[in-house]
Design a binder for these strands. Structure first.
Lengths: 173, 173
DNA sequence: AAAGATTGTTGTTGACGACAACAATTGATG
DNA sequence: CATCAATTGTTGTCGTCAACAACAATCTTT
């Protein structure tokens, strides 16, 4: 056995090499592998949230693919647009992303002329973040597409369920 | 200006270098930077879910830190424990993770003697995944800790809200 | 003026999702 | 039965992301 493996894959089959395939055979059964039963897995909030998070991000990226904007970039531009002059620390703290990460995010947004770092007049360490004129009009389009994405969410889980979800998770800002 | 930066950071302040700090000054204001106002950001399901996802994973990792088990590892062991003999493809499809990624996950779980890959009797390509005896008892402990984590979630968002959340997200398996 | 904290930056690490390739094997088709 | 397509596990790469650690420049405090 285990002829294929190059060098890795420890001696997994040393002891207990032969075993009966138990109740459910390896696969090939009657079902297409969709009714496996996760038992204790359903009932775990983290698991459900992970799947949802995955779906929702993919839909966001797909919906905003034409403008090439990802969820984090959108959130950064939204916060800056609503609060011009914010420092990087303030934005990072507000969005729950690290200031180290925000540096690269702002780099790309500045390259595309959506955001500009203006040296703060009061603190020579920090930058006052502003949307450029181009960034403002672009954000308008992003918001329309984001609203379309939000409609996709409502279609998926139900309009009222979406409202309820937002209400439940409101405590995370 | 811009003395500190080594070589990067384009000429961001070429035009419109001087600007009034608008309504809200850079920072240093009266507030500690917590009441910034995200306007359009609240009302976005993706944003709320991201924050929640982050919080919940951190709590899971912290709660299971003593046994050094991460959420994905836990989900893999749970599914295998509930459905012994499953192939890697079946587990990957069930959990929505790539089979390429599952390889490494199983490698680590096999190194720790929690899971064993047993060559399938019917399909010489695939492996039948089983928990080892050690893995079974370990999973029992993991589940107790995971239940504790789930209680943390209930404390955070409310017991009934957690139930409602699970019900809303049930459509994502 | 000196000590400590803050801000932006750079770098590294590790988990993770997405993709592409590959060998071994199976299944279906002619 | 021979051949070709599909599947399974594996390896590798790429890009995103969170978490740290370090650093220079700058503020704040004493």
């Amino acid at each position: 056995m285990a002829i294929r493996q190059k060098t890795s894959r420890k001696a997994a089959a040393t002891a207990a090499a032969i075993r009966r395939p138990r109740a459910r055979a390896t696969n090939g059964g009657a079902h297409a592998g969709d009714d496996i039963g996760l038992d204790a897995l359903v009932g775990h909030a983290g698991y459900a949230v992970r799947r949802f998070q995955l779906w929702i991000f993919q839909d966001f990226i797909r919906t905003l693919a034409t403008v090439d904007i990802r969820p984090t970039q959108y959130s950064v531009m939204t916060v800056i647009g609503a609060n011009p002059g914010l420092s990087q620390m303030a934005v990072a703290k507000r969005l729950g992303i690290e200031r180290a990460r925000l540096v690269h995010l702002l780099d790309s947004l500045e390259e595309r002329d959506f955001v500009s770092r203006i040296p703060s007049a009061t603190d020579r360490r920090s930058h006052a973040l502003h949307l450029t004129a181009r960034g403002k009009t672009a954000l308008g389009q992003f918001k329309r597409l984001a609203a379309e994405h939000e409609r996709h969410v409502a279609e998926k889980i139900g309009k009222d369920n979406r409202e309820r979800l937002l209400q439940i998770l409101a405590c995370f800002n």
